[in-house]
């Protein structure tokens, strides 16, 4: 391999490593179960843009019936769909405490881990293709759907 090839190869490494952290799968028990401590919380990097955490966040978004008010693509109340413009910890606070008193008690009712994941989901949402969201929803039809759940698929 010549020198230019070596440099090109080295230049690729950060992208590959970034790809890896997106693929990482850290389970809840490895994480402290607390709210973000501020913008410098190291957990932000572990949740944001991580495939597994974002996918789990989407799952809880459905389970808790968030879509009932916010819409399935979160374009309804408070339009959350442009979450990427907000920091993950700001989204965390918005879910945990609610705005204008809508769900001020979620911090006490929903585990911190799941709020982290939902925050990561909203942060990522604008980058999702609608077709893929619909496809995931098909797979998850047998899972809880907020208040409208009819039981598992027959």
């Amino acid at each position: 391999m010549n020198a230019r090839g070596a440099i090109a190869g080295l230049a690729l490494i950060p992208f590959l490593l970034a790809g890896c952290s997106r693929e990482a799968r850290q389970l809840a028990s490895d994480q402290p179960q607390t709210a973000p401590s501020g913008p410098a919380d190291p957990r932000t990097a572990r949740y944001a843009a991580n495939f597994y955490q974002v996918s789990q966040g989407g799952r809880y978004f459905t389970w808790y019936g968030c879509g009932d008010c916010h819409g399935r693509l979160a374009r309804g109340a408070a339009n959350l769909a442009n979450g990427s413009r907000h920091a993950v910890e700001a989204l965390y606070t918005a879910i945990a405490a609610g705005q204008s008193g809508a769900h001020s008690d979620y911090a006490a009712r929903v585990p911190a881990e799941q709020i982290w994941q939902m925050a990561a989901y909203l942060h990522d949402l604008s980058r999702h293709e609608p077709a893929r969201n619909r496809r995931n929803a098909l797979d998850q039809q047998g899972e809880p759907q907020g208040n409208r759940w009819q039981g598992p698929l027959q």
């Binding site: 490593l17 790809g19 890896c20 996918s55 496809r135 797979d139």
Partner: peptide, 26 residues
């Protein structure tokens, strides 16, 4: 070697291997 390893066994049945349960590229 980069830490992205398939993790569903040697036969990966859907829906477990489908888009909603195996996010990412594993």
């Amino acid at each position: 070697a980069l830490g992205i390893t398939p993790d569903l066994g040697w036969f990966e049945y859907p829906p477990l291997s489908g888009p909603a349960y195996s996010p990412g590229h594993r």
